[in-house]
Design a protein around this nucleic acid. Structure first.
Lengths: 220, 220
DNA sequence: GTCTATAGCGGGATAGAC
DNA sequence: GTCTATCCCGCTATAGAC
């Protein structure tokens, strides 16, 4: 029983490592078996098929992103503070699971059915995300009406935040290539980005009272 | 001869379509043959192997990104104007070839040797990129010394720009999912991002004390 | 240049011994 | 639960007819 648990866990850990680096098609059951140091037949004994094993790993990663964020969106916080918290939450997630951005992005792109499947499984409609974002969107629009931030598209702002948080993890192979930059250095860099990104976003969208009319002349 | 050319071109176009959506491992020679509407054996007749055909497509995409940017970096332009031009160039490239970000990112991540191979093939060292960026880095640092922009890492600024330009194209499957948003709408959105991203970056890094003098140089 | 046929191999999956 | 052996399919690649 103990042995059972260890084997199952070892397989899952191996599957995560292999699937998230090579992708579904690039990974083989033999790769995973080698990584887990178990017999190939055992993978089928525990998880029946490659697809089932993959879905386990994919769902794990997908849920990780969703759950992290949705709680934050509901919180009652000042606008800037909430932006800061969202950015921190994203970076924290990706520092803990740096493979997630590349994995999710690639699997969604190469197989649109994945997104479809996930949504159906969660019994959520295509408006799930939209509903989740209504609150923060409203808050953004409120800030605009109060003339405290520039007249930007709320969607754009959300996309910008996700881009700034996630993309460096996709660039990692290039950033760290042959560069003597090891994991710890990369982690530190990403930690520091929490503040610099928050800074960039807030300064980038904030309206400054004394020159707001001038800025409007130029940009709107 | 004419027939020959058409066949070869059809295969290349088909290979580009298939490889860039399914990735190297996801794509099969049969897929490409079907897409090109030619016999599978012809792919080997023209391109010898799957790998050679793939490298052709990959190199095409990789070169596209590099060539686009390196020229710009050498130009003599005011700092803000150069940022604006770089952002425009990136977005233009990705609007024309929206598959490039996902393709490059995934193939580099799943096969680190690709990056290695590309650099060796070009007979360029690992410092190729760094040399290319020295000029813009120096310019960034100059702006900091003059106290016109905040004290940020030049590398961070570059990463931020690339992130904001490229990542929305990776999010496309999610953004446009079941959303009635068709290609033309997405393109328009990306076109508008040219200005909003430039705006965000420049306002995000500008030092408030000196912004009035900075404004003069804005859209020269 | 273009096709059909097939070699040869690797991968997912299963049967069955222990 | 774990292993070996094996089935079977699909893929790359090539041989050879036309």
């Amino acid at each position: 029983m103990t042995q059972n648990y260890n084997t199952e866990k070892r397989i899952i850990d191996a599957a995560r490592a292999v699937f998230t680096t090579k992708g579904y098609n690039g990974a083989t059951m033999q790769d995973i078996a080698n990584e887990a140091d178990v017999n190939k037949a055992l993978l089928h004994y525990y998880f029946r098929s490659k697809e089932k094993l993959f879905n386990l790993i994919f769902d794990e990663a997908f849920s990780c992103i969703l759950s992290n964020l949705t709680n934050l969106l509901e919180e009652e916080l000042k606008f800037e503070k909430k932006l800061k918290r969202i950015i921190e939450a994203y970076i924290d997630t990706f520092v803990s699971y740096p493979y997630i951005p590349n994995f999710i992005i690639h699997e969604l792109a190469s197989n649109a059915n994945q997104l479809d499947r996930k949504l159906k499984e969660y019994k959520i409609s295509k408006y799930f995300f939209i509903r989740r974002f209504i609150k923060i969107r409203t808050e953004i629009d409120n800030e605009i009406v109060k003339n405290r931030i520039k007249d930007i598209e709320a969607n754009d702002l959300i996309i910008n935040i996700i881009s700034l948080c996630a993309f460096p993890f996709l660039l990692r192979p290039i950033i760290t290539f042959n560069d003597g930059m090891y994991n710890s250095t990369f982690k530190i860099q990403m930690e520091m980005r929490k503040e610099s990104i928050t800074d960039l976003i807030i300064n980038g969208i904030r309206n400054k009272k004394h020159n707001s009319s001038l800025l409007r002349f130029f940009f709107i």
